[in-house]
């Protein structure tokens, strides 16, 4: 059974049963707009019956495995040739990252490393070099996998995305973007154009960790990100987010609030990590059991907070 509707398009049908092996690509019409204007024209011509892609590293495997199926005649819109979406802009308080920017561009960007090191950390642990060379962060978010590794860093950074459609551009916090496994607030005919991330400031620190069945080229069993802002010896505010423990990437509000105004000593960190694990109800699947996920989540929060403290000293 397909677990999604091919995100953001209306052209999905059910896959054939009992088929082992690689399924054929659907007959498609390839469009590669070079400007935003051409993109919006294509969207208004084909409306919901078009599929937007960037790196295709989720799109093609989803077809090959039979998770998504499209009718022949699919209008594919490849946004990777739009120069305006291929830039990392270093603004005064934020980084503005285009939806066409590849994971390799993010990983090798000194600006990202300086202003949002937690994102660099996460991207470093994603996929493989070959995949990172074409995959985008926009695609990672729009795929809306509960395991999307760029989501926890963006959640703890209070990032937002810009979404464009025929009516214009709107801005949505990442925390409101995901609505379910494989689902986001994007509706057919909408395109995610940019990801905006507030830069890390003095007295702030953030960290990301992920656990999989091995250390490379693996989907997370649990991923976690933490960001803290210190005021002297006390934690002023905290953000804690997880991947792979809920239908969407999530923040855990009670654990975050617990840290506010407290000294980050061992007892406090342990209590907070326990609260964070209590706030989630992960599922058991073929990668790990719910119990194991809770255990790992607790440990990852502890380690991430300690990473943050270490980075601040």
């Amino acid at each position: 059974m397909p677990d999604t509707y091919g995100n953001n398009t209306m052209m999905t049908t059910r896959p054939a049963n009992n088929f082992i092996g690689s399924r054929a690509m659907p007959e498609l019409v390839y469009n590669a707009p070079e400007t935003m204007q051409d993109l919006m024209d294509l969207i208004s011509t084909h409306g919901p019956f078009a599929k937007i892609v960037a790196g295709c590293t989720d799109f093609i495997p989803s077809i090959r495995t039979g998770r998504w199926r499209f009718d022949p005649g699919l209008n594919l819109i490849d946004i990777s040739k739009i120069k305006a979406l291929n830039r990392i802009e270093n603004k005064e308080d934020i980084l503005k990252i285009g939806a066409g920017v590849t994971l390799t561009q993010i990983l090798t960007s000194p600006v990202v490393r300086a202003s949002c090191p937690v994102l660099t950390q996460a991207v470093e642990q994603m996929a493989s070099l070959q995949v990172r060379n074409t995959a985008t962060m926009g695609g990672n978010l729009c795929m809306a996998s509960p395991a999307a590794d760029t989501a926890p860093p963006l959640l703890v950074s209070d990032a937002w995305v810009l979404i464009q459609d025929a009516q214009g551009s709107t801005s949505v916090p990442v925390v409101d973007f995901f609505t379910g496994p494989g689902q986001s607030i994007l509706t057919p005919g909408q395109v995610l154009t940019h990801i905006c991330i507030p830069k890390i400031k003095a007295k702030e620190s953030a960290g990301f960790r992920k656990i999989g069945t091995r250390t490379a080229v693996i989907i997370s069993i649990v991923s976690a990100a933490v960001k803290i802002r210190m005021d002297g010896d006390l934690c002023e505010t905290a953000r804690i987010a997880f991947g792979s423990v809920a239908p969407t990437p999530v923040r855990v509000a009670a654990a975050e609030q617990f840290l506010a105004g407290k000294p980050l000593e061992k007892r406090v960190i342990e209590k907070c990590a326990g609260m964070a694990a209590d706030e989630i109800s992960p599922i058991t699947d073929l990668r790990a059991s719910a119990v194991y996920r809770k255990d790992v989540a607790e440990t990852l929060v502890k380690r991430c907070i300690m990473d943050c403290l270490e980075a601040l000293t």
């Binding site: 590669a32 295709c56 590293t57 495997p61 490849d78 070959q130 995949v131 060379n133 074409t134």
Partner: peptide, 17 residues
């Protein structure tokens, strides 16, 4: 692809124009 390693199974040929 332009000197960078990629998985050719995940690249649409039309995109390498």
């Amino acid at each position: 692809l332009n000197n960078k390693p990629v998985n050719s199974c995940l690249v649409l040929a039309a995109s390498v124009q």
